[in-house]
Design a protein around this nucleic acid. Structure first.
Lengths: 187, 187
DNA sequence: AATTTTTTACCGAATGTTCGGTAATTTGAA
DNA sequence: TTCAAATTACCGAACATTCGGTAAAAAATT
């Protein structure tokens, strides 16, 4: 008996794990093959343009997830501002597994891979800022302050993920999420 | 004529540039050879343990630089607190070329290279925090607040470097340095 | 039977590393 | 002071391995 067809979503999940952990250069086809359970040639059947296409699929996969979870929670005007933010940060916590997982945008933003995925990374970050800026103005911040806070939020998330890894201390990530929450809701 | 010896400092500077830009996996021996002007075999003469030893030399090189410039400026008690901090942040600005250069610690902290250099990275970050915490208590912050501010400083520097790259906007880094300055001096 | 999916088997190129060697310089014993 | 031995600094060429990628056949699905 032959193995059953591996589901697209399971492939993407596995590919994501590898690119997050090793970056673009560090992720070899063997790594990607081992992680997905598909032989190299099978990966080329699914992704005719090879490693680059796999990384693009991963970026899109994360994009969709972020929109469906983080951005949607933050935009859900049926809730109070406080609930919207808390729900969004809860999804951020999930995305990065409480600080254990790195950000794909970061993993793919070394100079060499930035040449390949730079525009995707830029627009992904821009959208984070847009969505958080919108939230800021919703709670009556001035557009300037709202945008500054949005950028600061991105910076703190990215920075704390790095420092987390470096110090091997995920408590830092939780503190940063609290810090972000206070930065928006504390008066 | 025997070829002129390539200066250790020049080699380290070139190696640093490559590892910063490409990370550990992404930096090939050819890249390192091209950057230094030494053939691969000559690099092995200088660094018998190969790429790993080159990366370790780079980490030490940066360590020394950071101690001699950033930490020394911050510890120089002949100056006022304001001057100490401003001088230190000026050196930070130099280290990262106003936001154009990435952090070596970050470049070498992908999972695979973290296994090789993790303890070095951890102690480097720990020392940043120790030195900035010391500065905080010098200006009469409580030890707890001083440490929290030190960690926050590290996070903001790392984070803004990432977001800088992603958005291709160096101004963010300058804003972050100002933000850090205000966070310490504004009362 | 026809098509999609996965496999085996393979390729040239690039990887990190080692070897053997050249030529200039430094060392130190005669 | 001499001069052979040891050391330094570099390089071309080769090493085994791994790289990303491909063709064709076998298996599974329709």
């Amino acid at each position: 008996m032959r193995p059953q067809k591996v589901l697209d979503i399971e492939i993407l999940t596995s590919l994501t794990k590898v690119f997050r952990a090793k970056g673009y250069e560090g992720a070899s086809l063997k790594d990607l093959s081992d992680a997905t359970g598909l032989k190299k040639a099978s990966l080329y059947h699914r992704f005719p343009n090879g490693k680059k296409e796999m990384a693009e699929a991963v970026l899109n996969h994360i994009d969709v997830w972020v929109k469906a979870h983080i951005f949607q929670a933050l935009n859900n005007t049926e809730n109070t501002a406080e609930v919207r933010l808390k729900n969004a940060l809860k999804e951020v916590r999930n995305l990065y597994d409480k600080g254990n997982e790195t950000c794909v945008l970061r993993a793919l933003s070394m100079q060499s891979s930035l040449e390949l995925f730079g525009s995707h990374i830029e627009s992904a970050m821009t959208e984070w800022i847009t969505v958080f800026t919108k939230f800021g103005t919703d709670i009556n911040l001035t557009p300037e302050i709202a945008k500054a806070k949005a950028i600061q939020t991105l910076i703190e998330i990215q920075g704390s993920l790095i420092v987390c890894k470096g110090l091997n201390n995920i408590a830092l990530f939780e503190n940063t999420l609290k810090h972000i929450e206070n930065n928006y809701l504390k008066h």
